[in-house]
Structures are given as C-alpha cells and as structure tokens.
C-alpha cells in the first residue's frame, strides 16, 4: 500500500478514484506518565513518553486508514493529512484521512 501526502505521482496514473478513507485513534496518558510530566512541567524539556504515545497513536490511525482502503480495493492513498485535537485534559485524538485511489503502477 502506497501512502503519500502528494496529490499525484510523477509517472504514475490514477486509474480510479475511490473516495475518502479515514482512521482515528484516541489515547489517554496513564497516571504514571502524567506525574512524570507534572515534574517535567517545572523544568521544561521534552516529554519522551508523550512523544512515543502520540507516535503509536498515529501509527494505529494510519493502520486503520490502510485497512479501510484495502477493503474497498485501493492500492494507494494519496493526499494524506493528519490532525490532532485534545478532547479533554489527558486524552488526544489523532485523525488521518486521505483519498483512496487505484494506480496503474503502485510500486
């Protein structure tokens, strides 16, 4: 499955558009991480635990998007966008969407 945030690819033709596909994932931070981040908030610096958490969350959302694209018979997803929103204190939603297409040469 080819994932890209370009709208088209040089030398490859889109033979069919299949519409929008999406995936989302909501993750909360667990208490231990929250306490650590409270301490970090005094001194500043990177919160590695959160970075990893959001990274995992993004991977899962992308995974779901790919599943959906495969289900409708696409071999590529173009023009992929990410968005993040914090719903309540302690939870973030990651949303990924893109256009599922069939390319003539998906390598």
């Amino acid at each position: 499955m080819l994932i890209s945030n370009l709208e088209f690819m040089t030398g490859k033709k889109v033979t069919k558009h299949l519409g929008l596909v999406q995936g989302s994932s909501v993750r909360a931070k667990h208490a231990g991480r929250d306490i650590m981040s409270g301490i970090k908030n005094m001194f500043g610096g990177e919160l590695t635990a959160y970075t990893e958490l959001l990274q995992e969350s993004r991977e899962e959302a992308t995974e779901r998007m790919i599943e959906q694209a495969q289900a409708i018979g696409a071999n590529a997803v173009l023009n992929v966008r990410f968005s993040t929103s914090s719903i309540t204190a302690g939870a973030a939603e990651i949303y990924v969407y893109g256009t599922a297409v069939i390319l003539d040469d998906p390598s």
Binding site: T10, G44, E46, L47
Partner: peptide
C-alpha cells in the same frame, strides 16, 4: 511545494517527525 519534480522516476514514502515539549514554570 505540492508539485513533485516532473523529471525521472522516484521512489516515495511518507515520513514524519514529532516532538512534545513541556513548558517550564
């Protein structure tokens, strides 16, 4: 730029990087 280069063939992959930074007191 949204336009990929028009010459030659390219292999492509989506890359990303992220970071969480906390404010200090």
């Amino acid at each position: 730029s949204r336009m990929p280069p028009q010459d030659g063939k390219y292999d492509q992959v989506l890359v990303s990087g992220s970071v969480c930074i906390a404010n200090d007191y």
